[in-house]
Design a binder for these strands. Structure first.
Length: 324
DNA sequence: ATGGTTTTTACTGCGTC
DNA sequence: GACGCGGTAAAAACCAT
């Protein structure tokens, strides 16, 4: 399940020179006797010679320079990459000056000027292309991490990354955090795929506050003209039911309650989660597998009051249909 | 910002184990 | 007495305008 948590790496290309210097522990590979190196980025200890992963540990910390509070975020990520070995150019890329002067300060000939202009264009192209790549990698890693924390399937991650890519292409990023946008993409993707997660659940695994996610989400949806219907209450049912250990029968009842409610138009404007929770509760009563309201409210993250209100409405709707 | 709607919070009373 | 449940009023959150 947590296979893909490790996609965080930024490219380690050009500087082989200083990599292996810091670990002086005299450990050797059980396979080939080669030297071991700890790869802190992945939380692994690997053999330099044969690549055997000797110790694979614990916590995936993500890129270690990421910010954990907003101040830090401003210091670090907001302004772009910190200088780090994790990036192939240490975050320092070159620009070609705009003055048409040579190294001695003399003006260039017109032919030279044209040439420099072309170079500038291409340099810029490559540079931004590559910063987008890095940005993307970062975001996809983040999406992956959150998706697995929420138990969302691969296809959701796929859609999330597609959405993110589009956001990136449309230049929606400036002024917004990568975290925020990737979280929103995931949220949107989950809803589109019919396996919605509530904002609360999402924000629990994201490094971003709920408000920001909501804001960014709205923005992204609007700009990208994604059409996302309000979540279908039924899509929450299986999850709640299984969290509560209810039978399939109960689950079916819950569904049918929701169906009749929908046909009566009871559901519009109400929170889908609340409806689902109420249906599950009502169903548990109907099939004699009683669970308490507070149990339901806990797994659904909804207040008991809301469950009460909704489930009355659901039962009324059901009765109304039965009489006709 | 505003107003209307929904959800939450906090509190109370009732019946049952 | 604790627990599950129901109801209510006021506060808070949410959403469209």
């Amino acid at each position: 399940m947590s296979e893909n948590l490790r996609t965080y790496t930024t490219e380690h290309v050009d500087d082989e020179s200083e990599t292996e210097s810091e670990n002086d522990e005299e450990l050797h590979c059980p396979e080939c006797g080669g030297q071991l190196a700890s790869d802190t980025e992945h939380g692994e200890t690997v053999c330099v010679d044969c690549g055997l992963v000797v110790e694979e540990d614990e916590i995936d910390r993500g890129p270690e320079w990421r910010a954990f509070d907003s101040k830090e975020k401003d210091n670090k990520s907001r302004v772009g990459a910190p200088t780090t070995n994790m990036m192939h150019d240490k975050g320092l890329s070159t620009n070609i000056g705009w003055q048409d002067k040579d190294a001695y300060g003399k003006s260039l000939s017109s032919r030279q000027r044209e040439k420099m202009q072309r170079l500038r264009t291409w340099n810029e192209r490559f540079r931004t292309r590559d910063s987008k790549e890095r940005n993307l990698k970062q975001a996809l890693g983040e999406i992956d991490r959150m998706a697995s924390a929420l138990g969302l399937p691969d296809n959701v991650r796929e859609t999330a990354s597609v959405i993110y890519r589009r956001a990136l292409d449309e230049d929606l990023l400036p002024g917004r955090s990568i975290e925020g946008v990737s979280t929103s993409s995931l949220y949107a993707a989950a809803r589109q795929a019919g396996t919605p997660r509530s904002l609360d659940e999402i924000s629990a695994v994201s490094r971003v506050e709920k408000d920001e996610i909501a804001r960014t989400y709205r923005y992204v949806v609007r700009e990208l003209k994604l059409e996302i219907q309000p979540a279908d209450p039924e899509s929450y049912v299986p999850r709640f039911a299984s969290d509560l250990g209810l039978s399939d029968e109960a689950e079916r009842r819950a569904r049918s309650l929701l169906d009749t409610a929908k046909s009566q138009g009871i559901h519009s404007g109400k929170s889908p989660v609340g409806l689902a929770a109420a249906a599950v509760y009502a169903a548990s009563l109907l099939v004699n597998e009683k669970v308490t309201q507070s149990d339901v409210s806990e797994v659904a993250n909804i207040s008991e009051v809301t469950i009460r209100n909704r489930y009355h409405e659901l039962l009324e709707a059901e009765d109304g249909v039965a009489l006709n």
